[in-house]
Design a protein around this nucleic acid. Structure first.
Length: 268
DNA sequence: CCTAATCCCTGTAAGC
DNA sequence: TGCTTACAGGGATTAG
């Protein structure tokens, strides 16, 4: 469930906790989240120092002194928590030379951790579209991308080759604040609404980051705390409740096997 | 090529 | 009460 704002929050937390710490041991409780041999994973980390932590899309990358990268994709239920107690969902325990610990918890085990020489060894990094906060992500880029397809605009927002980091929660929220129906074919979004959407993508994600993300179910930040953006969600998870703008009831529909929440009256 | 559907997983909640 | 079923939805893969 972590989307861009949640992963960004985790990354900012870890930059406070992990910088220049050295892995002294790595305990693999469940090698499914590695997708490869655990011996090699552990050996490539032991003795390595964390130089930095950054985010790309919904992935966390940690450059190491060896010039390799530890990459984590938390996917649905992955958590990277610092100095917490292990539980039955702890899949990896990272122990640092100063005694600090980092846990990778993942209830559903969809997440993946890898050590790579280059980020382009991971397919996700190669196909990912621009970051919403980057200078490449312009209104013109959005206009050209939308013009190319008749797919529902909601599906395009979820397409990480179009823009990195947006998931189901923020796709719904962005469309509400832009006043655009999730069902509208992308090529039929007016030039005016393209500008509004471009602006709202950036604004909604930034606002969610200031509230440290949304905790619908499993999301926790780097300290194991919940996000506080939930109470600011206008439509996500609110079917049958009144629209904050017009009071008519929020609808839930299914698009590409995912729930979409929207206000039929405010979103055209 | 493009897009939608399916799969991978587990825990919670709703329904009978 | 206890069992079954639906649902959560990121991203790779498969199907159409």
């Amino acid at each position: 469930m972590p989307e861009l704002p949640e992963v960004e929050t985790i990354v900012r937390d870890l930059n406070k906790f992990l910088l220049n710490k050295t892995f002294s041991d790595v305990i693999v409780h469940d090698d499914l989240v590695l997708g490869g041999p655990s011996d090699e994973f552990v050996q490539r980390l032991k003795g390595q120092t964390v130089k930095k932590i950054f985010r790309r899309g919904k992935a966390v990358a940690m450059p190491l002194a060896s010039e390799e990268f530890l990459v984590a994709q938390p996917m649905m239920t992955g958590q990277l928590v610092f100095n917490a107690s292990e539980d039955k969902h702890t899949r990896i325990t990272f122990i640092f030379s100063d005694g600090a610990k980092l846990l990778y918890n993942d209830q559903r085990r969809f997440g993946r951790l890898r050590v790579v020489k280059n980020l382009n060894e991971i397919k996700y990094f190669n196909i990912l579209g621009p970051e919403p906060f980057s200078k490449e992500f312009t209104s013109e880029y959005v206009r050209k991308a939308l013009k190319k397809t008749a797919r529902p605009i909601k599906n395009l927002l979820l397409d990480h080759t179009f823009v990195a980091g947006i998931g189901n929660i923020y796709a719904c929220e962005i469309l509400f604040h832009a006043g655009v129906s999730p069902k509208r074919p992308a090529c039929r979004v007016s030039p005016f609404k393209v500008d509004v959407m471009h602006r709202e993508i950036i604004r909604v994600l930034r606002e969610a980051i200031t509230f440290r993300g949304s905790s619908i179910r499993n999301y926790r930040d780097g300290s194991g705390q919940k996000g506080k953006f939930n109470q600011h969600l206008a439509v996500y998870g609110r079917q049958g409740l009144p629209c904050p703008r017009c009071q008519s009831l929020i609808q839930r529909i299914v698009q590409s096997a995912r729930s979409t929440f929207y206000c039929v009256r405010c979103q055209k």
